[in-house]
């Protein structure tokens, strides 16, 4: 398979995953920001949305203040923001067009359809119910793309590369949500138990679509350390670090088997997974939640670079 094709597939899936993550972040932020002031505290939720999306620099170069309108405009529709939902779909579609023959018709139609629809919407200022519907639609595109990939693709290297892109992006998104909100999960904050924290915790779960899963797994009220456990170590939770790395290792091993060769990417992924498997959430807190998350983000980036070096260059 051409390296460029693999690269396009890898980024195509990353961009679709990123668009979906942005939609969930915006939804959770919108919900949190709309709580009555009594539950609100001092934090500006829109600021942390910008931080979570990892585009603070570009955002503040353009907007003085983070509020509903400026953040929605920048994260969803701004052409100057390379990671806006609009640009994610635009780039995904461009990549898809370059590798069309490697995609199934269902995947192509999902992306092409989304791109056509988005061009129709892009210049309209969406607000209120329209915005909610739009964010729901973006998530739906992610689901449809994911679903058509799972249901229609051959299980070969094409599939592996697109999954690897998606999983790296997913792990990164979960990690960045935790990175921005980690202080809310620390015990000294948690015991305050004020109204605000409770809704903040809910918002974290919501941003990774895990409100219901949490209750199924722990069968108790929302506790900050259990949220950390769920999103970092629980491999039943599809967006957790552990689950992403379980899958990453599996797909990288498949590639290595198909190509008859192991490399740095396989080794990095395996050692990262081993660390997650052997960790206990109490140790994580003891050694420092923030450091743990920062290290993970760096490892995840290293794995992305190794995959690039080994296969995509």
């Amino acid at each position: 398979m051409l390296s460029r094709t693999a690269d396009n597939l890898f980024w195509l899936s990353r961009y679709i995953e990123r668009a979906e993550a942005l939609a969930r972040i915006l939804e959770a932020t919108q919900r949190l920001a709309s709580l009555p002031a009594a539950y609100g505290g001092k934090t500006n939720e829109w600021e942390s949305a910008v931080a979570t999306a990892g585009c603070a620099e570009g955002f503040y170069a353009k907007h003085g203040e983070a509020d509903h309108d400026s953040v929605v405009a920048y994260l969803a529709f701004d052409r100057d923001n390379p990671s806006s939902i609009l640009n994610c779909f635009e780039t995904a579609r461009h990549n898809a067009r370059s590798v069309r023959t490697a995609l199934t018709i269902e995947m192509w139609e999902t992306i092409n359809g989304a791109w056509i629809e988005l061009r129709r919407l892009a210049d309209r200022r969406l607000a209120g119910e329209e915005l909610t519907r739009f964010l729901g639609w973006v998530k739906e595109i992610g689901l449809r793309f994911d679903g058509s990939a799972t249901r229609t693709m051959l299980r070969n290297d094409i599939y592996d590369f697109s999954r690897i892109g998606m999983l790296l992006e997913r792990a990164d998104n979960t990690a960045r949500i935790l990175d921005v909100k980690y202080h809310l999960l620390l015990p000294e904050q948690g015991e305050v138990g004020g109204g605000l924290d409770y809704y903040q915790w809910q918002a974290i779960l919501r941003a990774v679509s895990a409100v219901t899963s949490y209750h199924w797994v722990y069968r108790e009220s929302v506790k900050p350390w259990l949220i950390a456990d769920l999103l970092i170590l629980n491999d039943q939770m599809p967006r957790s670090f552990a689950a992403c790395y379980g899958e990453l290792v599996r797909h990288l091993d498949q590639l290595a088997r198909a190509y008859g060769r192991q490399g740095p990417a396989q080794r990095l992924a395996r050692s990262c997974r081993a660390r997650l498997e052997n960790a206990d959430i109490r140790d994580v807190f003891q050694r420092g939640l923030h450091e743990f998350i920062t290290d993970f983000i760096a490892d995840n980036n290293r794995l992305g670079a190794a995959v690039h070096e080994q296969y995509l260059a």
């Binding site: 398979m1 051409l2 390296s3 260059a313």
Partner: peptide, 27 residues
């Protein structure tokens, strides 16, 4: 390319070494 089952390459996917043309693949 799809109908023929062959790779669709761009110039940057190919290179020449010792007067032989190669394409860059994941393998």
């Amino acid at each position: 390319a799809d109908k023929l089952g062959i790779e669709l390459v761009e110039g940057r996917d190919l290179f020449v070494r010792d007067e032989v043309v190669y394409m860059r693949t994941t393998e």
